[in-house]
């Protein structure tokens, strides 16, 4: 992930009014996490699994603040249970930014399941998403995710793939 891609994510979060980020760090978004840690207007809360991070973000929504969950796309599987309960059961939205592990071009065998399962998982959970593969689209995708989730009271996701993370 290039420094300019990191800055595009940060710019989108700033425009969306995000003040808390929970994350479980991964390799593709690795430079993003210290950038979030260093941001003076964003409190970071590392979590022990992505389901916990999703629930933390749900709690932040209930406070009137805005949060983001950052993770590898494999975290979607770990977070599926709380996401289903909060989104489909209670109308508590979580906005996620995740890396697209396992898309075409992936050269790690262990990441293949992440690519195969991510989009069906998002569809099963009724979570709209945008796959962004060019830096120019990152900032607006983040802003749009918040606009939608705070109208629908359902989760949304920005998936960073292609040249944005490789």
């Amino acid at each position: 992930m290039t420094p300019t891609a990191v800055q595009a994510v940060i710019a989108g979060l700033e425009r969306a009014g995000v003040t808390l980020a929970s994350y479980l760090p991964d390799s593709l978004l690795k430079p993003l996490y210290p950038a979030l840690d260093a941001h003076p207007g964003i409190r970071t809360v590392p979590c022990t699994n992505e389901g916990e991070g999703a629930a933390i973000c749900g709690g932040v929504f209930l406070s009137g603040k805005r949060a983001v969950l950052c993770m590898e796309n494999s975290g979607l599987r770990a977070a599926a249970e709380p996401l289903a309960r909060m989104g489909l059961g209670s109308g508590i939205p979580v906005v996620m930014i995740m890396s697209y592990r396992g898309e075409l071009g992936e050269n790690n065998w262990w990441a293949v399941p992440h690519g195969i399962t991510m989009e069906p998982m998002l569809a099963a959970l009724r979570i709209p998403y945008r796959v962004v593969r060019e830096e120019a689209g990152i900032e607006q995708a983040v802003v749009d995710a918040y606009e939608w989730s705070y109208s629908a009271y359902q989760h949304s996701a920005v998936v960073l793939g292609g040249s944005t993370v490789r």
């Binding site: 808390l20 629930a55 933390i56 749900g58 932040v60 209930l62 709380p82 309960r85 059961g89």
Partner: peptide, 17 residues
């Protein structure tokens, strides 16, 4: 809520907010 494992994390998010 009606979910295992989410109550205290949600409360934490609320407390931080």
């Amino acid at each position: 809520q009606q979910q295992l494992g989410c109550v205290t994390p949600q409360a934490l998010g609320l407390a931080l907010g």
